[in-house]
Design a binder for these strands. Sequence first.
DNA 1: TTCATTTTTTAACATTTGTAAAAAAATGGC
DNA 2: GCCATTTTTTTACAAATGTTAAAAAATGAA
Lengths: 188, 188
Amino acid sequence: MDELIKKINSIYPLKPDSLKLLLDEMHKIGLPKNKVLVEAGQIGRSAYFIKQGIARAYCEGKDNQITFWFGLEGDFVFSYNSYINRQPGYESIELLENSILYEIKDEALQRLFLENIDLANWGRKLAELELIKLEERYISRLFKSASECYAELLKNSPNLIQRIQLGYIASYLGVTQVTLSRIRAEIK
Amino acid sequence: MDELIKKINSIYPLKPDSLKLLLDEMHKIGLPKNKVLVEAGQIGRSAYFIKQGIARAYCEGKDNQITFWFGLEGDFVFSYNSYINRQPGYESIELLENSILYEIKDEALQRLFLENIDLANWGRKLAELELIKLEERYISRLFKSASECYAELLKNSPNLIQRIQLGYIASYLGVTQVTLSRIRAEIK
DNA sequence: TTCATTTTTTAACATTTGTAAAAAAATGGC
DNA sequence: GCCATTTTTTTACAAATGTTAAAAAATGAA
């Protein structure tokens, strides 16, 4: 539970009382590989913190899936779309490994935000930090070729490439698996 | 001021008292075309609401600029990066037309968030909504060809294409201006 | 209007990426 | 270890996009 507390406070330092309110709503669960945490078309009812494992968010295309996010140890997982809009989302999220998570019901989280200003600001900061992470990723893709994006990934998250199959990574980078193979062949 | 109040309440409905606190900190200003609201490398000290005009956010590349966001009437403008991290940002934001804005000092906004839970939740909701807007844009780009992205832009924001020069729009779509010209030629 | 400047389009060729199919390599259950 | 299945790489060709340069069109100031 220690890494969870560290992560929570790194987003926005909470007073001990506020932290306790939040922790009291979070429950540890183990879930198997391939478990779907959030299903497109359904409302996501929980958010998760990844203690151990990998998650993958994707959308269904005409004849393929588009992977647009990976979550690793220390990340929060939630369907932004359905978490924020309270509407069925377009994205699914599944586990790529047997995982250990802390779950919090969306309902509880929303209630805490309305009751406690410390937690409301924590929730604000969480969204803001996710926003700039996504913006950096968005801009990075406008700037860089697929090859450069792969090199960056290799540098910043080498374990990600070892633990996730390349088809998903290709999709994440916005290229086909054939192109990713070519890129990898060139680098060697 | 009416459209400003409408916009604020559409993000998250505020109690009249909270709304007043926020409005008291916002001041109407007129600024000319080409005015740089936020300069890369500096800390953005204000956020803005666009009453009239257009803004464009961009980064400097090696030998070009990458445009990654446009703001129109009814949008909020702020350098996420420097607004959130309180650090010099990588992005610049400039006006593409003579504009009328409402300005709020970052300092005042941060203070309000810490003092008033209603406004803290408003700020949370603002970040969350920006987050899903960006996510939708991000996913859309993974799915669609440049041609489809342009068609979508033409459908959803036709005035954007009339008011903004095509070089910026090409960059926003992630293609060269030559490619955008070809796409436009095909559609006709 | 006229002229200089900026913006947009077009053309020709090079490079990158996609598609489809097959081969090679890795994985997992028995 | 063996075999079926899945994943990754390779190949050949097609399509899309980039690069450079020039032409055409639009814009704005005198």
